[in-house]
Design a protein around this nucleic acid. Structure first.
Lengths: 188, 188
DNA sequence: TTGACTAGAACGAACGTTCGTTCTAGTCTG
DNA sequence: CAGACTAGAACGAACGTTCGTTCTAGTCAA
């Protein structure tokens, strides 16, 4: 693991657990065991660390969604795969999910667009759009439908991150998916 | 308007627009025209300002939800009223909505429970619970169903706060409600 | 020897908070 | 009623700390 990677991994952990502003560069040097000088060699500033972390996570999600788009034919299968993937990540790598869904990036990445208009979120809306064109999904406003289709799952994930759930997240997957799909499915 | 109220109103505006950590006590004194000394007379510290603001908004929402519970009989009517109210507030007082839904309180209010387990959110789940008992809502896990019923609306509100929507939020209300209710309604 | 990398001491700016003081309005006393 | 007294609201300069960042010196591989 390179020094750069160690910094990013440490930043993910500290930013999600303590928050960006409650994490000092000293915290990062201590936890990552990379010196101040090295960090500023690889990154322009503290914001640069956050930006690199953010970018790497967005790239990863874009890639995963790309795979799903290719692997599945119907919008129904694609969207279920997306929600399943999100649930998986939320359980196995809660920090990753927390940084993507839960954190207010724009407080410390003022030039970044809001998450909702990031590439992965756009891809989710594209899936919905295609589902409408294929007649799988009731034709309505795409934003409204996308919100309803994925909103339940996303709320469930934030409940999980907040430690509200007493069972593992995956136990709720079936209930959430049945409800979410019923919300948008074209009436036969 | 008392000095105390002026501070809370200013805090709401600055915290939502710039974020808690990007807002200094000097910003608050400048904008509210209340001196540093006075602020520390009314509030223990910066966190105390945020806590008072948070509490006042939660109290207000609890009260509004209480009214809705009494005013409407069925869970369907209650839940639609809740979503309508949230949309109304999001449009007329976006700062209020942003502070309640969008902001990561726990970064600066470490002793506060997460929003999802605040009183207003509990009330929403109670409405769902009663809907199940009355046979209006398909019996499933209450948390999952609540997430699906309100998740779409909440996502829509965050889209609105992010400035993604090109039309006023209320234009989406019908689509969102139809989808959300279909997600959970008992099959006749 | 050069250039990429590491190290951590040092710097200056900005922060939240404190503190001594002044101002204001009300109350008590003779 | 006049004057002494009190409580607490308001003020803002100053303090000590912490932060992000820079700087200088050193190491190591090619």
């Amino acid at each position: 693991m390179t020094a750069r990677d160690k910094v990013i991994a440490t930043a993910l952990e500290l930013f999600t657990h303590k928050g960006y502003f409650n994490t000092s560069m000293r915290d990062i040097t201590r936890e990552s065991k990379v010196s101040t000088g090295s960090i500023y060699h690889y990154f322009k500033d503290k914001e640069g660390v956050a930006a690199a972390l953010y970018q790497s996570l967005m790239d990863r999600m874009s890639l995963e969604f790309e795979h799903i788009s290719q692997q599945y034919e119907t919008a129904q299968d694609q969207c279920r795969a997306v929600i399943t993937l999100l649930f998986d990540i939320a359980e196995s790598e809660p920090d990753v999910m927390a940084f993507m869904l839960y954190i207010k990036h724009r407080e410390f990445l003022p030039n970044e667009r809001p998450v909702c208009s990031s590439v992965p979120f756009e891809m989710m809306r594209t899936m919905v759009q295609r589902g409408m064109e294929r007649g799988e999904i009731e034709p309505r406003d795409v934003l409204a439908v996308s919100s309803c289709l994925f909103g339940g799952a996303i709320r469930m994930i934030t409940l999980s991150l907040d430690g509200i759930l007493d069972k593992p997240l995956k136990n709720y997957l079936d209930d959430v998916w049945v409800c979410s799909w019923k919300a948008v499915a074209a009436t036969a």
